[in-house]
Design a protein around this nucleic acid. Sequence first.
DNA 1: CGATTGCTTGAGGGCTTTCAAGACGTGTGG
DNA 2: CCACACGTCTTGAAAGCCCTCAAGCAATCG
Lengths: 252, 252
Amino acid sequence: MAASTGKGPSLRAVDPWTFADLATANVHQLLSEDQRAELAAIASVVRFKKGAEVYHDGDRAGAVFNIVSGVVKAQSTAADGSERIAAFLFPDDVFGLPEDGRYVNSVKAITPVTAYQLPAPALRNTLLQDSSLGFHIICKLCLELRQTQRHAFLLARRQANARLALFLQLLEQLQAARGERTSEIYLPMSRSDIGDYVGMSLAAVSRGFRSLTTGGIIEIRNRRHVKIADRTAFERLAGDLNETWTSASSEQ
Amino acid sequence: MAASTGKGPSLRAVDPWTFADLATANVHQLLSEDQRAELAAIASVVRFKKGAEVYHDGDRAGAVFNIVSGVVKAQSTAADGSERIAAFLFPDDVFGLPEDGRYVNSVKAITPVTAYQLPAPALRNTLLQDSSLGFHIICKLCLELRQTQRHAFLLARRQANARLALFLQLLEQLQAARGERTSEIYLPMSRSDIGDYVGMSLAAVSRGFRSLTTGGIIEIRNRRHVKIADRTAFERLAGDLNETWTSASSEQ
DNA sequence: CGATTGCTTGAGGGCTTTCAAGACGTGTGG
DNA sequence: CCACACGTCTTGAAAGCCCTCAAGCAATCG
């Protein structure tokens, strides 16, 4: 899971005010070598086994994390005891931003994970000193905000198949943004996790995949690898055709 | 709609790393007088009539807005032509953050609106010069990110009544954060807008309100004013009882 | 190789959507 | 000031979709 070439914390995003030439570098390393070194000075590397909990909802927030490799899920428990997944986080993503000094989700590793741990007080100081760094963090936060809005957009869909297609599209775009091959979509998370993210039951997810398969829209090589068989039908289902331009939308 | 005492753009949020004493100032003005003046120097005041469009999805993004008074909705059109509302924005909120130099939602005024308009290039420069300002913007973005996650959390609920209750709770908390009275919840938006936000049909919203009323949970004074009649049942429905602590959650 | 976990599939029931018609409020013009 | 007209909201009935419960099947791990 290639994260970055250099050493030190890494953010992948774009300056949202720049009108990006869609053909060129879409999403790239935001931080300079100096900034990464600056952050590396206050960071430590931590590792988690698959299934391990990084922190728990309500814990005192001592640090922000920046993923080097692996995937985590940010989940919270609903009133009825069911789990809801707020986000999947991938290499170069940031998580652990607190509310009132406490974490507001439980975060668990769904693959083995390596991450930088940035103590909050030191990070705060660094942010207050380096205005350019703050600006880049803003860019990254804008990207995560958009990602979350896309999630909300997905959840607002009524048709289960459309939610699944949108989810697959999301993963594919993230994969592309990370520079990985997109001939196949890799699903590191379980069916159950997918259900908790797209707001359907485990059974419905299973049925949904089956429905997309028999409809000729996707092909399932195994439980972790899916391929888009009919791109046109796929994007029609995900709802791209009616959008003004190519990429999907959501933001405020 | 009281926004702020001083003059110039205004952000209302908290430094998320601070462990706030829940009794004291929870959400307050982030910017210093100097910073507000600094921003005011590059800002202009704009007004919109009820129903007017501030900008359209896909427009070239030239400016960021900061609401002084009034309420706007950020909506986008789904593939099937139905509208989805990503967020309602209130005084002291910020909107107009672009993606690839373009806006990614249409924003419309649902009441008469007054706002500061901050041209993007000037704002960008200001952000790059004032690291403390950048830090405060980060705080505000964290808050909006949490808000969006809360929206996603709401949308993931299966029971329509629970989604409505959560929506009312959201509005109530925003109202409290703005320092307004919370004996009644004010709904500036139409039933149709509510449906577009909580992910249900207009008819279902109507039925939902009716159901909550006959269940003794809320009282409807008129279409824009609702009161919580049974706080316990209300919070049980919204799902607070099972949370570890008092306030609801969402973040990553 | 056995056991545990994760996934698939079936049948029945509940909830929301859709379609449609009627009531309410509001704003405008007479 | 009242009447009308339009948009907003409410309410009804039928249909469709997904959830729940439950059992059987794969796959992974020790």
